[in-house]
Amino acid sequence: MTTLTPTADRSAPAAIAERPHASTYLNGFVNEVHKGLLGLRAGWREVLVQMITFPLFYLLLVLFMGRGQLKDDLLVPGLLGMVALTFIHEQVNRVFWSYLGDLQSGVLEQTYLTPMPSWVLVLGRQVAAVVSALPSALSVLLVGVITIEARGGNTPFDVQILVPLAAMVLGTCGFALVLCGLTLVYKRIEIITQFSIAIWFIAGGTFVPLDKMPDVTAFLSRLILPIAPGIEATRDILLGGHSLTNLPTGWGLWWVLLQPLLLVAAGVVLFGRLERVARRRGTLGRY
């Protein structure tokens, strides 16, 4: 016989927190990250497949660019581009598809039936996606380093690249926020996600440096693509040996730092607006 054991009667709560405590926000955030990582663990087989296919794709791409040969002068720049591309591909896709999945299964609505503001949960989701993107990106890096070292090459490293890397992560979060907002309102926007990955591949500076592109393309890429300034700075530091404060290509350190902040701000504003539209149209759940 199914029973529900009575606990202390809470049918008439005496005092209700109008706004959750800061610690409640933090718990909600950690909770969301934890849930994302549980999902990562549950899907470990898929992650394993990605950890094999992304490095293979990198090697094939370098072979293709070298007309059938693994050329040393292509391995390092190719590695920079591929690690960044793998990372952003994974991060954006994980956030987008998990959000869409929750929307279509109706679970997203349940997360709205809590005192927790949605931005806390989206933030947690983003951090979980960042962590989830790491295995694939690191596997590309590892295979790249092994290949370069095995061919007698040298893999450059400079701690300064952590700054543009962090900027890329932040900018990608801003972009993913916009995608999540759009997902709340519009159906079938997965094409935007796929299209954006293609744009980063072609015009994000991942394989072809921005300064080798037409001026208009380079300008637009630096302006709006979340990884472009970061990739350009990373190239300058690792391949050109320049310091962070003296980046010869692109618009300098200030833009590397400012662009992701602007993207996050745009993401927050757009997400908030689109969420309100979703509440008006009743599209928070589409099952």
């Binding site: 927190a17 299964s105 109706g106 349940q110 039936l113 005192p115 759940g285 099952y287």
Partner: peptide, 14 residues
């Protein structure tokens, strides 16, 4: 926030 602490819901089709 206070209103959300007042209820739990099971939604149809979800």
């Amino acid at each position: 926030s206070a209103a959300m602490q007042q209820f739990g819901a099971v939604l149809e089709g979800s």
